[in-house]
Each structure stands twice: as C-alpha cells, then as structure tokens.
C-alpha cells in the first residue's frame, strides 16, 4: 500500500488532524506541570546556599530552553515555507512565534524575580540575561513584521527571510554579548559546582517536558485558527460543522 506522505501538508487535512492531536498534548502537559511543580515545591530539598529562592529554577530553566529552541524551530518552518512554498510550514512558523515570545518573557521575568534575592538587583547585565532580552526583541520583530503586512503570502515570505537572517545572527550576537560582558564586569555569580539533587533534576525535567507539550499543543491549536482565517473563503471551511451552525 502506498502511503501518501504529503497528505497532511495540505491545510484542509491538517486542520482535522491538529484538532484531534491537540488534547493529546494539552492534557499530558497540564498533568506534567502539576507533577513537576509538586516535586519542585514539596519534594525537592531546600538548597544549602540559596535556601527556598532557588525553586524558581524549575520554571526559569525550562522556559529559557524552550524560548531558544522555539526560535530555531520557527526559523526552520519559515525556511521550509520559503523554499518549498508549503503554506502550512509558514502558518506553523507564525503559530509558534507568540509561544516563543511568551517563554522568552517568562524566562526574563523569573530571572528578574530570582535575581533580586540572589544578586540584590532585579536586573544585572549578565550575558545570558542580555541575550535572552535580545531574543525577545527578535521574536517581537518577527511578529511585528508579520502583523504589518496585509497580504499573507508576502507576510510569510518577508518574515521567513527575517527569521533566517535572525537565526544566522543569533550565535554572533550570543558570543558578542558574552565577550562584552567579560570585558565590562568581573565574573558574575555563577551556579556553584554542587551537583543537583535527584528530586531537583526530576522536577526540572518533568516541567521541561510539560513545556514542550504545551508549546506543541499551543502551536497546533493556534495553527488551526490561522488556517481558518486564511482559508475562510474556501468550500471545505464552509462545510465544516463548527462553521456551519
């Protein structure tokens, strides 16, 4: 039996698939968030140096990891859309951008909340904080460019080019910021070399998986809205039961 590999690259077929898949990612995400945060807040022991304040790490680190990966995935989808002219890839890219920006914001916010008790300041110009801020700027640029172009095809292509240029620049920016930081100020407080407790690792890993599932669920449900919006004039959308009523 021949398998049609490209069946789900058409928005009309993917719409249904995404709708079926979303709960399969959303519910495990909610469950794992609950489990991971329970372990983080109640099972993991108090840290010897940072006492209770360190517990924000269980949100901070997964959010930072996600914000970086999502930019690359978004740029990858955007590039696919630009090169192979697959509409769905471009839609996926624009569906992921707000989630990525959200994670970047959460990462900055929790970083500031963590910095106050640890470093005594809401914000320090630490290399990692600064690069995260620039990453947020890149996300916002992508979203703003897409929002200001009315023709969706041009918006997809233009923002794809921007995402590709951005992802080429990300390592350059990262290393420049790091070098700038070491030039300007002495070593900021770093995580001490103490090995992490097993419960801490479990909690962080569980929340990380939950964040991934959440990002996928959000991406799928947002891409459904984008599909509906862009294909509003097609026959298959008009025949959908949820549109008809």
């Amino acid at each position: 039996m021949a398998i049609n590999w490209f069946k789900y690259s058409a928005p009309s077929t993917f719409y249904g698939l995404a709708g079926k898949l979303t709960p399969w990612f959303a519910w495990p995400a909610a469950l794992l968030f609950a489990v991971g945060l329970y372990i983080g807040f109640f099972v993991a022991p108090t840290d010897a140096i940072q006492s209770e304040a360190y517990r924000i790490i269980f949100i901070h680190v997964p959010a930072s990891i996600l914000s970086m990966f999502l930019y690359l995935i978004m740029a990858g989808y955007a590039a696919l859309g630009l090169i192979f002219k697959t509409r769905l890839s471009s839609m996926m890219a624009s569906a992921l951008a707000p989630t990525g920006a959200l994670f970047a914001l959460i990462s900055l916010w929790t970083g500031a909340l963590w910095g106050k008790p640890m470093w005594g300041a809401w914000w320090v110009w630490d290399a990692r904080l600064t690069s995260e801020l620039i990453l947020l700027f890149l996300y916002l640029g992508f979203i703003a460019l897409q929002a200001s172009i009315e023709d969706p095809r041009r918006a997809d292509k233009a923002s794809a080019l921007l995402a590709i240029v951005g992802s080429v620049n990300v390592p350059i920016i990262y290393y420049s910021v790091q070098w700038w930081n070491t030039l300007h100020q002495g070593a900021t407080i770093k995580m001490t070399g103490t090995s992490m407790h097993v419960a801490m690792q479990q909690s962080m890993f569980t929340v990380l998986v939950a964040c991934w599932l959440y990002a996928i669920a959000m991406g799928l449900s947002r891409v459904r809205s984008i599909i509906l919006e862009r294909e509003a004039n097609t026959q298959w959308v008009k025949e959908l039961p949820e549109v008809k009523q």
Binding site: I134, F137, L138, L140, G141, A144, L145, L162, V165, G166, N169, I172, I173, S176, V177
Partner: peptide, 10 residues
C-alpha cells in the same frame, strides 16, 4: 528600526 536594531548589536 525594530527589525534592524537587534541585529546591529554586535
């Protein structure tokens, strides 16, 4: 400016 400024940081 929003698009270009972050890229000129290096």
């Amino acid at each position: 400016s929003l698009l270009v400024l972050p890229l000129t940081i290096p």
